[in-house]
Amino acid sequence: MKLYDYWRSSAAFRIRIALNLKGLEAEREYVHLRRKEQSSDAYLAVNPQGLVPTLIDDDGTKVIQSMAIMEYLDETHPDTLRLLPDDAKGRTRVRAISQAIACDIHPLNNLRVLRLLGSDFDIEEESRNEGWYKHWISEGMGGLEGMLADGGAGRFAHGDSPTMADVCLVPQIYNAQRFGCDMSSYPTAMRINDACLDEAAFRDALPENQPDAE
């Protein structure tokens, strides 16, 4: 198995956590996003979107998009820790939390968007960080806090075992803190984040612990 990875990519961070939780190993190939290696012909032949992560399984199966990769790993390695609960209601709740992060919060603040705000709209870096980034974190995390505090959480986002929801939550909080966002209004999310970071599977996946970290 091979994972195309970048240390600061939130989406790749998710897959590093997922692999660790499942006890699966993957050869790593690093794609430097700030040097725009994702736009090279060689990488576009691997992933036409020019994004990380990309997972190549041992039989040559290629999977892109972090959410799809996690479900693929669940289905192809059923004897490992399951990232989605067995019951329909549980799966629905975990998917909803995961998608609130991966589809609503994260895309507005990823590197491509922040770069475009500067290059095409002449928005200064301070305004991008203090205005745009923090606004969307506040909007998104406020709703997410309510979802997490609906009674379904245990030690983790859904019960007492890590799920896809936790795998999505930790990278999002990591980035919000990196940009200096005040997270004190989200006590449930922060409690769950702390519980996750007590686990080696999450800590070992942190950006600063990656071989390509700068």
Rank of each mutant, 00 (worst) to 15 (best):
I137E: 12
P187E: 10
A201W: 04
G60C: 02
G152Q: 14
F13A: 03
E27H: 06
Q210I: 04
G50R: 07
M1N: 08
M183C: 11
Q177V: 14
E124S: 14
D150N: 07
P85G: 05
D160G: 11
G180T: 11
H77A: 08
W132Q: 01
G60R: 03
Y174P: 03
E208A: 09
N193E: 10
L19V: 01
I15Q: 03
S40L: 05
P107G: 02
E130S: 11
A45V: 09
D160N: 15
E139A: 11
L197F: 05
K62N: 04
E214C: 12
E71T: 13
G140N: 00
L3I: 04
D5Q: 05
D160A: 12
A11K: 09
E126D: 10
L24A: 02
F202P: 00
L33A: 00
D5H: 10
M67T: 09
I64M: 15
G23V: 05
E208H: 15
E130K: 12
K134V: 01
A165E: 05
V167G: 07
D87I: 06
T163H: 02
E27F: 12
Y4I: 00
L114H: 07
A213F: 13
I17E: 00
L169P: 00
P78T: 10
S39M: 15
S127P: 04
H158P: 05
E25Y: 09
D120Y: 13
W136Y: 03
S119P: 10
W136D: 02
N193F: 10
R95N: 04
D166V: 01
F13N: 06
L197Y: 11
D58F: 14
S98V: 07
I64V: 13
S40E: 07
E214S: 15
D5W: 07
C103H: 08
Y43P: 07
K36T: 12
T61D: 00
Y4M: 08
S98N: 06
K62Y: 01
T54P: 05
L24K: 03
V170K: 08
C168A: 14
D87Q: 03
L144W: 06
D150Q: 08
E25F: 14
K62D: 06
T188W: 12
I97Q: 12
L111E: 12
Y133R: 15
A18V: 09
R34H: 15
A96V: 10
N20Y: 08
W136H: 08
L24R: 07
A18Y: 06
